[in-house]
Design a binder for these strands. Structure first.
Length: 421
RNA sequence: GGUGGAGUCGCCUAGUGGCCGAGGGCGCACGCCUCGAAAGCGUGUGAGGUGAAAGCCUCCGUGGGUUCAAAUCCCACCUCCACCGCCA
């Protein structure tokens, strides 16, 4: 949710953000009006409650006629309070509905436009030549018996797979490397629940426009997370954090489940887009004034990780229309897939500012001792399955063998090259 | 899944309808004392909304209800603990 104080003091800023996102700016005025109505309702109810309290306190001391009179007045007030509270509840609900429907206020400098308007801000590494035949990750996976897609479909359906042999080893190697890097950077390693309550899902903004993306377990009113961001964000919900020593940083490992609704026919080959994969995700709670710098820090760690895997990639500044409801800014790292002859998303980092923390009620104490809403940021360290696909393609050798980046060797028995199985 | 017990301001705890938004202890902060510390003494010490401030309002697991009035009575739910059943 956006900051209502910002809305009151600078509604034009919020309207402008709505426009650049391609959302309806009129909602801003609806929210302002609803907010005004709520404030009036609250103040009316407060006044009545105060009066009722005063009279109620006089009742036990009064006797006879006087007592009867007091009780009569109190009874009337009681009805008034009830009515005022009904109005207040309705006004609250109206504000909440509108408040939730307005996405975060985009940061200055975010490229305007939609999916195709994102801006490449940096390219890292060089794409080498791939002599024929260039194999895609499916062919490489078959050659190395690393991924069993057919049996994944047999057992679980389309977009499922088994990691077998080398594939399984690669996953464990990547998880170990990512977690080790995370610890090196001072993040707390976490293994987090993949099933969460509706509040956690709602609080992180995943039940808005993308609700259809999410698996729900109806019998228990739980959701399967699409990223450990959900559990990590909700980890400190309803808490007041001590951020005086700097941001609180976590690296969470969990499976991720995505329905991929509306992506039929998109990336159907192999394991590039799947319903389930494992991921190591970074998450940070910090002061809002530190959020932009923290965002750069997370991006830096993502770049370092991809570089250590010797994957050429580019960094993209995501355009406003493609940000998602929670983020004020988002950078994706897209790595080169030789079979597709283009860069594809491997990691993504978002600065959500106070949007999630306000919903989840995560706060900290400022220097003056006042509680303030914290900022949250998230970033992919390693989305395992897609990274495996990328490694298989990028590091293929003409003879079908696989070059192993030095960083992964400690977890793969020291091998520099892996021959087909 | 079954049965029983419990959820009060960081922690422990008092509180069975009105002077209780809430007493005590611990902890913590500040002050006094001290060369310094400990002990002792004093003062303060939950959160949210609104307001320039004083203040006012809300919150005793959550949500309903009864009542002029609810931490206190009633209902539902959640969580935790214990035992039983089942299980990695």
């Amino acid at each position: 949710m956006i900051d209502l104080r910002l809305l009151r003091s600078d509604p034009e800023r919020v309207r402008a953000s709505q426009r650049i996102r391609g959302e309806d700016p009129a909602l801003v005025d609806d929210l302002l009006a609803a907010d005004e109505r709520r404030r009036a309702a609250v103040s009316a109810a407060d006044g009545l409650r105060a009066e009722q309290k005063t009279i109620s306190k006089q009742v036990p001391r009064a006797t006879g006629e006087q007592r009867e009179e007091l009780l009569r007045r109190a009874k009337g007030l009681s009805d008034d309070v009830r009515a005022a509270e009904v109005e207040q509840a309705a006004a609250d609900e109206a504000v909440r509905t509108l408040h939730r429907s307005i996405p975060n206020v985009v940061a200055d400098g975010v490229p305007p436009g939609g999916e195709d308007d994102s801006v490449v801000i940096e390219t890292v590494g060089t794409v080498r030549d791939y002599p024929e035949p260039v194999r895609d990750h499916v062919e490489m996976a078959e050659l190395h018996r690393a991924i069993d897609i057919e049996r994944g479909a047999k057992v679980s359906g389309a977009r499922f797979y088994f990691l077998t042999g080398l594939g399984a080893q690669l996953e464990l190697a990547l998880v170990n490397l990512a977690m080790a890097k995370a610890a090196e950077h001072g993040l707390t390693q976490m293994i987090v629940p993949a099933l969460v309550k509706p509040e956690a899902m709602e609080g992180t903004g995943f039940l808005g426009a993308h609700a259809a993306e999410v698996y729900k377990v109806d019998a228990d009113d739980l959701y399967l997370v699409g990223t450990s961001e959900v559990a990590l964000a909700a980890y400190h919900s309803e808490e007041i954090l001590d951020l005086s020593a700097g941001p609180r940083r976590y690296a969470g490992f969990s499976p991720c489940f995505r329905r991929e609704a509306g992506s039929y026919g998109k990336d159907t080959k192999g394991v590039f887009r799947v319903h389930w994969f494992d991921k190591v995700e970074m998450f940070s709670f910090c002061r809002p004034e530190d959020a932009a710098a923290e965002h750069q820090r997370l991006l830096g760690w993502e770049k370092e990780f991809l570089t250590s895997l010797e994957l050429p990639f580019q960094v993209v500044d995501i355009a406003a229309g493609d940000l998602g409801s929670s983020a004020v800014r988002k950078y994706d790292c897209e790595a080169w897939f030789p079979s597709q002859q283009r860069y594809r998303e491997l990691t993504s980092t978002s600065n959500c500012e106070t949007f999630q923390a306000r919903r989840l009620n995560v706060r900290y104490r400022d220097d003056a001792g006042r509680t303030q809403v914290a900022a949250t940021l998230n970033g992919t360290l390693c989305a395992i399955t897609r990274t495996i696909a990328c490694l298989l393609e990028v590091h293929q050798q003409p003879d079908g063998s696989l070059h192993v980046p030095a960083a992964l060797r400690p977890w793969l028995g020291g091998a520099e090259v892996l021959e087909p199985a």
